[in-house]
Design a protein around this nucleic acid. Structure first.
Length: 598
RNA sequence: CGCAGGGUGGAGCAGUUCGGAGUGCUCGCAGGUUUCAUAGGCCUGAGGUCGCGGGUUCAAAUCCCGCCCCUGCAACCA
């Protein structure tokens, strides 16, 4: 048994999340965590909403609310979305808790004391009316190369050239149209070049990563530059240094604080659990965390933050960067075991875009379709190692022709037949080689499916689980138990159905990490009681340190099925089943396409 | 310009590390079969110059060179 940290990317709270977001971090992390728990590991799955930064400030201004009010609104929406998908977070919190502020400031202080954070004066764009940092993406102007009038500060969409915002002719703010000022401003920088050796050593010791993630990360090490980790902005975490602490106009950069959320959420979870030091079992680089593993789940655009920035913060705080130092008060901390990055989901051939309505939000999806239908699609056809296109036609097909026709039908036909002919799980008498072969196929699935999930090859894993389903369907066709109705053949019919139901039970366990909602239902159809697949719940909590209360996602996942075959008990009553999965009418494809913008 | 990933029957993917007959998976399509089941299961079949052009080799989807197309990154976007 190991202590497994499932560190899940923090959704940005500037709007509802669409299915592209949850396909990258949500479903893969939950499948992995559920499997690891079922296999007996002690899993801590944490995340929360990422609520600081310029975009939330800008949108709050546009909506006439405070950034906190905006964050409150979308934090709740996102919590509900993730709950609806059945994502089994031990704690899904947010970055605006006082606990998070304290942990971020502790890391900042520790890094500063070890010499990895240095002040620098730079030329940066600010908004003259607010004095706030104006990120490149919020500046537009005329491209000095091609004359395109709506070039962005970082690049021209017309000619594709990279730009510096200072180069733009007639630069203006996309927020309010004013002309940006380029001013000297003092900021703190993370001294990334001071981690080149230690990061390289760490990366060289990695194995089992998806090759593209590892290559990409190594490549980043060749050109490490100091990186600003503060901004001219009022919305964010104050800088915990004398003369800076009380300044209203300087804050810690949102990405610096967001990645620290993995640690602060773990600490918050421990404090709420009644054992405030419990987080150390997943984090401490000493004996307390000796069997700890950390897996980080995100979309590919986040790789740099998880394979360079976050490890650097951990190394620097622990006193293990190239300049040495000593650990801060939290002690030396573990670096990620693996950065598990997904590629991108596109929507009907285009990028997801809220403004162009090329989007389906999680909550809208869940209003019309089952969570497990989406989970199935993402697991079977998601952007695991390639960009993948979501189309409604493919979604309906996967649901109807694979999930319903393959798995749903197997559940339904086998339980129906047993219920009708026996009213209970019949006993298995003499087992034939065919019976034994099928049972063995199902048992072998626990090894193959488990190994594939452990290696983050979930597409292959669910494919193997579905192969067991197909074998069971074939077995029923071959054995044709419906023909064994004569009195002297009835015991054989019972044996065949017992074997089929046993394999349904096994396949259900194999599919539980992917399809937890329906796995619970199938468990009950087989006469099982109690919790098979535990679900998260939304709990309103008080801030631990006196801040405003908020909703969290949490749950007790110590209950539930284990990753093993559980022998069925002959004589367990069976009722005629109701279909677990819904077949979708092909007309939904057109309906959904009409909802999309053109 | 640069870095990384991708381009495999009608669709979506494995396979490429370390060359061995276009092999495989999930579907679709055609034909057959069956009826326990949410017209679903089962069987058989058709369908591919493995992005393009060169090269190495007895042999290339796989190795090398060049090119085209798609995606992401390119660090004060999140």
């Amino acid at each position: 048994m190991s202590h497994v940290l499932a560190a899940v990317a923090w959704p940005y709270a500037n709007g509802p999340r669409h299915i592209g977001h949850v396909s990258g971090f949500g479903v893969p992390s939950d499948v992995f965590s559920r499997y690891m728990r079922m296999s007996g590991h002690d899993v801590l799955m944490v995340s929360g909403t990422d609520e600081h930064g310029t975009p939330i400030q800008v949108q709050a201004d546009a909506d006439g609310v405070t950034p906190r009010q905006l964050a409150d609104r979308y934090n709740r929406v996102i919590v509900e979305d993730l709950h609806g998908l059945g994502l089994s977070y031990d704690l899904f919190t947010r970055t605006t808790t006082r606990n998070h502020y304290a942990v971020v400031q502790e890391l900042f202080t520790g890094l500063h004391e070890n010499g990895y954070i240095v002040p620098r004066t730079t030329l940066g764009a600010i908004s003259p009316s607010t004095g706030r940092t104006l990120p490149d993406r919020y500046i537009e102007g005329t491209c000095p190369i091609c004359g395109y009038e709506s070039a962005r500060g970082d690049q021209c969409d017309n000619c594709g050239n990279q730009l510096d915002p200072e180069q733009l002719l007639n630069p203006r703010s996309r927020i309010n149209g004013e002309t940006p000022q380029f001013v000297e401003t003092e900021h703190f920088f993370l001294d990334l070049p001071a981690f080149a050796q230690s990061l390289g050593k760490w990366l060289d010791a990695r194995d089992g990563w998806r090759p593209n993630v590892l290559k990409f990360s190594r490549n980043l090490l060749d050109d490490l530059q100091p990186r600003a980790i503060t901004r001219d902005l009022e919305w964010g975490i104050p800088i915990p240094l004398d003369d800076w602490r009380d300044r209203g106009d300087k804050r810690i950069y949102v990405w610096f604080d967001a990645v620290i959320g993995y640690l602060s959420a773990s600490i918050e979870w421990a404090r709420r659990s009644g054992d405030p030091d419990a987080w150390r079992r997943w984090w401490s680089a000493d004996a307390q965390g000796k069997d700890a593993l950390g897996y980080y789940f995100m979309g590919k655009d986040n790789i740099v933050f998880h394979s360079v920035i976050w490890p650097s913060l951990l190394l620097g705080y622990s006193g293990s960067g190239d300049k040495g130092g000593s650990p801060g008060s939290l002690g030396a901390l573990n670096l990620p075991t693996e950065v598990v990055s997904s590629e991108y989901l596109t929507m009907e051939g285009r990028k997801f875009s809220s403004s162009r309505k090329v989007v389906i939000y999680v909550r809208d999806f869940l209003e019309r379709y089952d969570a497990d239908a989406l989970r199935y699609f993402i697991a079977a056809a998601g952007p695991e190692s390639n960009d993948t296109d979501f189309t409604w036609a493919e979604f309906v097909r996967r649901n109807n022709d694979e999930l319903v026709a393959g798995w749903g039908n197997l559940v339904n036909r086998s339980i129906s037949m047993a219920a009708k002919n026996f009213g209970e799980i019949p006993p298995a008498l003499d087992l034939t080689p065919d019976d034994l072969a099928l049972l063995e196929t199902a048992k072998a699935g626990f090894v193959t499916v488990g190994e594939l999930i452990g290696k983050h090859r979930q597409k292959a894993a669910i494919g193997e689980a579905m192969r067991v389903v197909a074998e069971a369907n074939k077995y029923l066709s071959d054995q044709a138990p419906w023909k064994l109705k004569a009195a002297e053949e009835k015991p054989r019919m019972g044996t065949v159905l017992h074997v089929a139901l046993q394999v349904v039970s096994d396949a259900n366990t194999l599919l539980t990490p992917f399809l937890p909602h329906s796995a619970q239902k199938v468990h009950e159809l087989l006469g099982g009681t109690g919790v098979h697949a535990p679900m998260p719940s939304i709990v309103e909590v008080e801030d631990l340190d006196g801040g405003p209360g908020y909703p969290v996602l949490t749950g007790d996942y110590t209950v539930g099925a284990r990753w093993e075959s559980v022998p069925l008990v002959a004589g367990t009553p069976l009722a005629a089943p109701k279909p677990v999965f819904r077949k979708l009418d092909p007309s939904v494809v057109e309906e959904e396409l009409e909802r999309l913008g053109s």
